[in-house]
Computed example of a mutant assay.
Amino acid sequence: MSIFVSLMLLLCSIQPNEAQKGLIQRGKASFYSKRFTGQRTAYGERVRVGEFTAAHRTLPHNTLVEVTNLSNNKSVVVRINDRGPYGKGRIIDLGFSAAKALGMLHQGIANVTLRVVGGDRLVGLEPKKEDPLSTATSQLLLPTSTEPVGNN
């Protein structure tokens, strides 16, 4: 009995510092509606419509995950900044902008794959609109700033 208790204590005390890069998960994704804007996440951040963020039950805070919509092969990279989803059968809750880039706003739920990509930069990928023949081509979407751009 003491071996069992010791083993359980050991396993419960092990916490990963970083998600395994390349870890793949498949399931259903949902997204936050705009009405959650301004509310706090599990990590104390405010939900913002323009950010590529997401909620996952087990991945560590700030993990970067590539999410691919299996119905149209669109992909985005999101940063985990919340816990969830709590809807049955869902593996990730996406921020509004990430869901829009994946083309899942009308359906509300999409079949997706998740792949941990690691790193420390927040970026999003979506197919280029000017090249309708190639769905594999992607463009980089960097977070927008509220400061004006121009010569000072």
Rank of each mutant, 00 (worst) to 15 (best):
A54W: 06
L9A: 12
K128L: 05
V78M: 07
I3H: 08
D120S: 10
G22D: 04
G150A: 13
K28C: 01
H106Y: 10
Q15P: 00
S145Y: 04
C12D: 07
G108N: 05
V49L: 07
D120E: 09
G95E: 01
A54N: 03
M8E: 10
S138H: 11
A55E: 01
T58D: 10
I109W: 04
N151K: 15
A110K: 13
D131C: 07
P16Q: 10
I3A: 05
Q25H: 06
Q107H: 10
V47M: 03
V112N: 02
G150L: 13
G119H: 08
V5I: 14
N111T: 14
Y43V: 07
K34I: 12
P148Y: 11
V112W: 03
R57V: 04
V78C: 04
L133H: 07
A19C: 04
R40N: 10
G103F: 01
N111P: 00
L141V: 14
I109E: 09
V78K: 12
A29M: 09
N62G: 00
G95T: 05
L122R: 15
V5E: 13
K88G: 02
M104G: 04
R115A: 00
P60C: 09
K34V: 13
T37F: 06
S138D: 03
I80C: 01
T113H: 03
P16C: 02
V47N: 03
A101V: 05
G22S: 03
S75G: 00
V149A: 05
V78E: 03
N62T: 14
I3W: 06
E130L: 08
C12K: 13
A42D: 11
L142K: 14
G84E: 02
L142A: 07
G118A: 09
E126R: 15
V49G: 00
T58V: 12
Q20N: 08
N69A: 09
N152A: 07
L23D: 09
K28T: 14
S33G: 15
Q39A: 01
V5G: 01
R35L: 03
Y43T: 10
L142Y: 12
E51Y: 12
L59P: 09
T58G: 03
Q15I: 09
M1C: 00
T144N: 09
T37W: 06
S134Y: 08
E18I: 12
H61A: 00
E66V: 07
G89C: 02
A55T: 02
F52V: 05
S134V: 10
L122Q: 15
F52A: 11
V67R: 11
P143Y: 12
V149R: 14
V49T: 12
L142I: 11
E66H: 07
A136L: 11
C12I: 07
S138A: 06
L23F: 11
N152H: 12
R83E: 01
K74P: 00
